[in-house]
Design a binder for these strands. Structure first.
Lengths: 242, 242
DNA sequence: CGAGCGATTGATCGCCATCAAAGTGGGTGG
DNA sequence: CCACCCACTTTGATGGCGATCAATCGCTCG
């Protein structure tokens, strides 16, 4: 981590700046740019709103753009020819979508909730990055973190039981939410049970049953289908790792 | 890919150069360095031999070194507290071990076969890379490729049947081997059945059974436990994706 | 030749998938 | 405002794939 970690002071912008007030600026790679750099980057792209369910791009599409998530949640998924789907990750505000050098997108990206994104032409983004060594290193840091997360998910999919997967998933979302906004005591599950199942390599019935089991054993409390309170993170953590 | 792809001419070295005759030089990141750069990098490290089975480092160890594989095969794995193991990847000649910014290794690395590696002090390696933008970009390219491979493996672990996993595995090794040495018609399986099982999220009995099934259906021919000939890659490719 | 380890093959079990049905809630239109 | 609809979720019953338990095989090495 060291030099690449987040947490440095993010410079204030005058109110006329196009990035002024961006909810995700302090979370994203943009925090590594000053007012001038931001303005230059901003000119490479524009903001797009995506209604829930809408695709940003599909697996196999020519990769012409990269994105920063400003608000909402995006899912990345890959399909097998017969329609089986694996969700490889969820993207939250501040996350960068564009860590690849291939010409074609290797996965589909779709909005889970209504989402706001900052879209850049890939060519111009690459040019811009090439002139900003700090940003270049930040991208490398992001790539290494995503790689570490993917490897963690390999352990989950290859070796964990259904109960362990669900516990791991809840804790991961909880961590994520806490880092994003300090996180109240209520954990948001913005995605459907189908999305959870396709992320965890399970079927929706199994997801539902395991969540119900956690409810019965007083590990969690449901306020609604998409809102849950974790009642014992320590025990949950034990159950997440066998 | 584009500017980051391999395949450029690798400069000849005079016979006194420490990297002269390195079997992996044209495969690895070193192909992006000239004689002077190579000499400078070489001074950061040294060659180590690792007998089969010996660990290079363990998950949780302080990460003081990075490595290039020169010959042999290395496995990367993660353990759950109760001993369940997931192999997250195999490293072959030319592969770089050290794409992380964390202080601790996130996985264990062990020699599958006797292996020869080029070891660098991480601090000096980082300094060196920081002065070589081409190398820096090459590292980013490596990270994006590993990420893409990990995501492909997520699909395998989350959604494929045992038979599909085995077929995918054989084809992946075959591709790898062909890219490395043109690959004769005989595919080497240097790792044990246990390693294959822990890579594919299966048990060794299932691996053995599925390999036997492929033999019965004349898709493969075994010359020995660790040598196999693929008899119909097209059909195998179909079976690998359902 | 025998010990020992990895691989194979066989028999049975159990977790999670599948099939099926009922419950829930949000949105629409009468 | 409420009835209806439709999509999503939950719960129940059954089945199958791959795990587990167990025995044998076969190679390597002492």
């Amino acid at each position: 981590m060291s030099q690449f970690s987040q947490g440095e002071a993010v410079p204030e912008l005058e109110s006329g700046h196009p990035c002024f007030g961006c909810a995700a600026r302090h979370l994203s790679m943009c925090s590594f740019l000053d007012g001038e750099g931001l303005r230059a980057l901003r000119e490479c792209g524009r903001t797009v709103m995506l209604p829930a369910g809408k695709a940003l791009f599909f697996e196999g599409d020519h990769a012409e753009t990269v994105h920063n998530v400003i608000s909402g949640v995006v899912r990345l998924s890959k399909l097998l020819p017969d329609g089986r789907r694996q969700i490889t990750g969820f993207m939250f505000p501040g996350d960068f979508l564009g860590i690849t050098l291939e010409d074609e997108h290797a996965f589909t990206a779709e909005a889970v909730t209504e989402a706001e994104l900052c879209r850049f032409s890939r060519g111009r983004f690459d040019e811009f990055v090439a002139r900003q060594p700090r940003l270049e290193r930040r991208l490398y840091a992001l790539a290494t973190h995503e790689l570490a997360a993917a490897r963690q998910q390999l352990v989950l999919l290859g070796r964990k039981t259904a109960a362990e997967r669900i516990a791991s998933f809840l804790l991961m979302l909880d961590d994520r939410q806490r880092r994003l906004d300090g996180g109240g005591s209520i954990l948001q599950l913005p995605m459907s049970r189908t999305d959870i199942a396709d992320y965890l390599g399970l079927r929706i019935e199994t997801v539902s049953r395991e969540l119900s089991a956690l409810k019965s054993s007083r590990m969690v409390q449901f306020l609604s289908t998409h809102e849950v309170r974790l009642l014992d993170r320590a025990v949950l953590r034990d159950r997440a790792e066998g």
